[in-house]
Amino acid sequence: MYTQALDTHGKEPVPAAAGESGGLAARFQARIDAEEKIEPKDWMPEAYRHTLIRQISQHAHSEIVGMLPEGNWITRAPTLRRKAVLIAKVQDEGGHGMYLYSAAETLGIAREEMLAQLLSGAARYSSIFNYPTLTWADVGAIGWLVDGAAIMNQIPICRCSYGPYARAMVRICKEESFHQRQGFEIMLTLAQGSPAQRAMAQDALNRWWWPSLMMFGPSDADSKHTAQSMRWKIKRFSNDELRQKFIDITVPQAHFLGLTIPDDALCWDEAAQHYRAGPIDWSEFQAVLKGDGPCNHERIEARRAAHEAGRWVREAAAAHAARERARATRAA
């Protein structure tokens, strides 16, 4: 799932031979403009490398942390089929994290280092996962809205200039389509169920709608670094463009469910043929990004606890492997 907070990409390093680097940078940009893919060992500006490492690793962290809110309901899924589907979805998310860590590692950063950045709080992940899953309907809402928003963010990245990232995204997008469908199916079943279930679905929509809109990141006017990422074909559409597309697609789906979008100002603009949403409370977004959301602490604690509790296991596996290699060498 895409992270919305792209940090500053920094400046390009001042090279020793200014002329040569200028030539390299120009050739690099020409390759990008020609829609060529950049591969791991190709020359690239340091800023391009750093921007990608940050974006890909944050994307990976989002997938991993994203396993937790839905994982919270696996043991309580209300039917065996729902349980199996939810396990498969969360498993996919773990897999997506792995594809992305893999892609980031091709840029010269180790997974250990990325994990350390996540656990220390130095790295960010998508703010949406800092909200709690309070009812079974939340599982449906996440699949429908959060995966829906993620898909919208992710499809353009399939054409990103960096080969390993683009290829990882193609794999992810193929797997993602069932995620959104299972979420919508849950919402549909609830919306067509008992009054208590309908209320459960509406309550989940009320709590997940605005955070989902915030997944697309700050408004274009407030997003300083979009321009360079667009030039390098890392980012292909602006935040507002994607957010608008999401709203236009999702509002009719909510109508089909018979649920109400929690936005009194929402209306249809006949001239522009778009839905116009009310104002987003960016202060909530900033607070959650800073670490003051409902579950920031719990999410990181869960990852830290798992990492610590698993240390003796990882050490044992490494020790065993070393011993086996020594045995093999002696036997040879």
Binding site: I87, A88, Q91, G95, Y101, A309, G310, V313, R314
Partner: peptide, 18 residues
């Protein structure tokens, strides 16, 4: 299934889920 998201390594989350 209770282990998913809490295993010693990401690869084991997938293995146990399987």
């Amino acid at each position: 299934s209770a282990w998913i998201g809490h295993a010693p390594a990401l690869e084991e989350d997938l293995g146990l889920a399987n």
